[in-house]
Structures are given as structure tokens and as C-alpha cells.
Design a protein around this nucleic acid. Structure first.
Lengths: 251, 251
DNA sequence: CGCCCACTTGATTAATATCAAATACTGTGG
DNA sequence: CCACAGTATTTGATATTAATCAAGTGGGCG
């Protein structure tokens, strides 16, 4: 199944017509090497990127070199839904330590999809809501949780997200993130990341390395993190009688 | 001018017809006392709240009592645009130490507004993009900046947002936030908030207290915070030939 | 007056950053 | 296949930041 369909299927069940319409929209693809910023400046703002394969990070750099990862993106995620309305990008997107494949979709194609298939429109909207919700949880994470909880929480999130789109191989997931990236995501120094990783490993909760993450004790990890998957809205499901988007759409 | 119109006018200039249509939508109002959670459970999900007067906070509590403020809302802000599509709320909204006035708007009224006035639809969408952008900056704030920078950055943000909707009285703004709230917003203990406040005061950057914040040295505060107002998108402006929302809308 | 709440202060402790160096690991050219 | 360069990881020692604990001040108000 196409990664975008698989992702949106968390929310809604699509007809084969809808599925193929979605699949057709994501034909113009390109690959980006490891640790490479995905450049936007040249792109017309009428274009939106979707990540089809691999991983990417949304990030914001401060002028003095510090930088913060704002989100990890996995296959099926949209990269910049919405930014087109704003005149200036306020953050960037880069691949992690492996290469990734993106699709470029024109504004027109998206609009066409949404006009023809309200369910798809709602699914896109659901996806942005989910992303916002994850962002809120990240604020809680860096604001309130200490090192081990924070890292455990990130791992739980990633595992559940990947699992929801069928990218978890048992409790083992691809996760091409180096310790420096973890630091940038969790707001911790690399040294402290290293020591916290050891703590989680010593407790038999995870194995991490070689671009992979293995959850050895999911309940234990979730307990440590205080993890509650409500915010991922993975169980939200479209149904015919649903109230629909708040951002109003035509009847 | 109606607070919602004033807020959306940052983005677009409205005709008097559009203005009155907006004004008419926000007639069902109610007041909420200080430090009160704005209860949603009873509300049908077809309803959306707008903050018309005063301040509010979006917040998420952990089971052990820690809680994190995710955003401050000011007059004109929408409270839960979008949450209706999800089956479960993942956070709450409360007033701060003063009371606030909200308007309840039905899903139908919003849809009607947007159908009839595409500019209003885009403006709503712009507002949610702005909110997301602010959320991203909060992640950077708690993740990367240390105490004084972090607090200074929050004050800069609030000042610019309030100023943009005409709620800054010179460099003096209403800000009914007690030190405990600052701690919950910035992820710091109350004691440390107190000491950091003293530092900013001693440097002659701000005055804070009695539900008000005065910026005594804006350039100095912005320099300390490393503040760059791009992310507020306060200068984004609608114009006829604009590409429009990425979330597709009817032609 | 006396209580509650916010704020303030001081002392101590805990968490995390920083600095510096050593040890793996990876891919490359010879 | 090896040597090497460049990264990534690990470790130890120390410094700094912020949390915690505990106690006091001060104002508003029944």
C-alpha cells in the first residue's frame, strides 16, 4: 500500500477509487541523501512535500549554532502542509543519517483530491491535527520530564507511530537517528544523551544503535515515560455521520 | 472593533460586510471566573470557542501533578479550532488570574462564514498556522534557551502579539499571570522564576507584577532572548492573487 | 486580627552541561 | 586487505544551572 494511504488509513477506510486517486497524486518523487537539508527556497509555494520512504526531521536553528528538532517525520507524513499561506518559512526540514524519498504535489492536485473526495480532505486535516497534538506533547516533554522519562517518551511515541503504519517489525523499528540528533530533539547535551541511553539499556528497556531501536520492555518503558497514547489519536476513525472538520468546508 | 476581526486583520483587510458577518457570529458569549477550567466535556463537538476578552491558557497536566502551559491565548484567539475532528481532547483550557469572556460558535455558523467569505476562511487558516508556529517556537524555547533567555523570549512574544492587536498600552501590557504560571509555561520551578525575574528587573529590562508587564528596554530584551519575530508571521498579509491555503479548499 | 496566598530569600542538593580525552566504527584510497 | 581519516560513541572530571527544602515577608480581605 502507498505510504500516504497507509498513514491516512489510521483515520479512515478508503475505497479503492480513493486509494488509487491518492496513489496517483504522489508520482513525482525524488531522493535526498543523508543529513541533507531539503531545500525549499526555490520551490514555488504551490507545492507540498510528502515523505514516502525513510525519515526526516523538522528543525529550527538559533543564530549561535544551537538547534532544536521539532518533529520526526516518518513515511506517509506531510512535510509542509500549510506553510504556503505564510510568506516566510520559520524552520527547515532535513533528512537524518539515511536517505529519504519525497513526493512533490502541486497545490492544484491537492485541491482536486480534496474537492472530489471529502473523506480525503478530512483525513489530511486529521493528519495536521495529529501533528499539532504531537507538538504539544513535545512541549510537555522538554518542559516537564527529566532526562530518562523524556527519552523514554520519545521512544514510545516513535514506536507507536511506526507501528500504526506497519513499520514496526515486532518491537524493532528503523530509527536512523544518532545521539546528537536525540540531543537536538530532547534538548539535552550529547553526553547526557549517551548516559541516559545507558540507563535505559541497563534497565533492559531498549536496545538502540545501528539505526535501529528495539523496545525490549514496552510496558516498562511506558511506565517510566508516563506515556499515554491518547494524544496520538491513533484510534480516531472517520465515520459517515461524523461532525467533520472545524475548519469549515463546503456542505 | 470586534476582537476577532482585529486579530484576523493582522492577516487580511476585510470589507465592512465581512466585518459585520464576523461580528454577528460571535454573539453567544459567556464569562468565566479567574483560575477556572473552561469545561468542554458537556459541549457538543460542533462548537468552537473564541476568547473575546481577557487571557486564557492551554495546558496539559501529568498524572503526578506536574502541569505544562502550552500556549497563552489573548483576545481574538480561537480556542479549539480543529479539536472537533478528534474523538478525545488531549489538553484543557483555563483562565488565568482574571476572568475572561468567551464566545461559543456553532460548526454550522463557521462553515457558513467560510463558504460565503473565502477571505475569512483563509484568515482562520492563517490563524491556526500562526498558532502552530508559536508552538514550534515554544519547543525551541524550553529545549534550548536557558532561564533568562527563555523568560525574555516569552515576554517578547506576548508583547508583540498583544501589540499586533492593539492591546499594548505603550510598552505596558496586561498580563494576569502569576509566577507559578510562568513556571508552568517555561518549565521552571517557581523559585527559579522568581530569581530570573529579579535578574531581568535588575538589568532594567522589564517591570512585572500586579497583572501587568512593562517592557522597559525592548531592544535589550530581544537581544537577550535572541528574539526574531518572523515566526509570529505578523506581517503576512492576504492579497487577491495569493496562492491560498494548502489545505485544499473549493475553487 | 488573622489567614491565605503570592512572593522572596537562603541553604543545600540534584540534574545536567561542559571540557577533555579515549575508544570504537565506517568508509575510502592504496 | 590494510592504513587512515573522519565520525560517532563512551568515559571521567569538573562546573554550572536549576530544583528542592525550608522559612520568612507582605499584602488583601473576611
Amino acid at each position: 500500500m502507498h505510504p500516504v494511504v497507509r498513514k491516512l488509513s489510521i483515520y479512515a477506510t478508503f475505497s479503492s477509487e480513493e486509494e488509487s486517486a491518492l496513489g496517483l497524486a504522489f508520482t513525482q518523487t525524488f531522493e535526498v541523501g543523508p543529513k541533507t537539508p531539503v531545500v525549499f527556497q526555490d520551490d514555488p509555494p504551490q507545492t507540498t512535500l510528502f515523505l514516502l520512504k525513510g525519515f526526516a526531521s523538522r528543525r529550527k536553528a538559533l543564530s549561535d549554532g544551537r538547534d532544536q528538532i521539532l518533529a520526526f517525520m516518518i513515511a506517509g507524513d506531510a512535510c509542509d502542509m500549510g506553510v504556503a499561506l505564510l510568506e516566510k518559512r520559520d524552520h527547515g526540514i532535513s533528512t537524518l543519517s539515511t536517505s529519504a524519498v519525497f513526493a512533490r504535489v502541486s497545490q492544484d492536485a491537492l485541491r482536486h483530491l480534496a474537492d472530489q473526495y471529502p473523506k480525503i480532505r478530512d483525513a489530511f486535516y486529521w493528519a495536521t491535527l495529529m501533528e499539532e497534538s504531537i507538538g504539544r506533547e513535545w512541549i510537555v516533554n522538554v518542559g516537564q520530564r527529566h532526562a530518562a522519562e523524556r527519552m523514554a517518551h520519545l521512544f514510545c511515541e516513535l514506536y507507536h507511530r511506526l507501528n500504526a503504519v506497519g513499520l514496526a517489525n515486532g518491537h524493532n523499528v528503523e530509527f536512523p537517528v544518532i545521539q546528537q540528533d536525540l540531543g537536538a530533539a530532547l534538548g539535552m547535551s550529547t553526553v547526557h544523551i549517551n548516559r541516559t541511553l545507558q540507563l535505559l539499556r541497563d534497565r533492559g528497556l531498549i536496545a538502540f544503535g545501528d539505526h535501529r531501536l528495539t523496545i525490549l520492555d514496552l510496558p516498562g518503558l511506558e511506565r517510566l515515560a508516563g506515556f499515554d497514547d491518547t494524544y496520538l489519536h491513533i484510534r480516531a476513525r472517520y465515520n459517515a455521520g461524523h461532525a467533520g472538520s472545524v475548519l469549515p468546508r463546503p456542505a
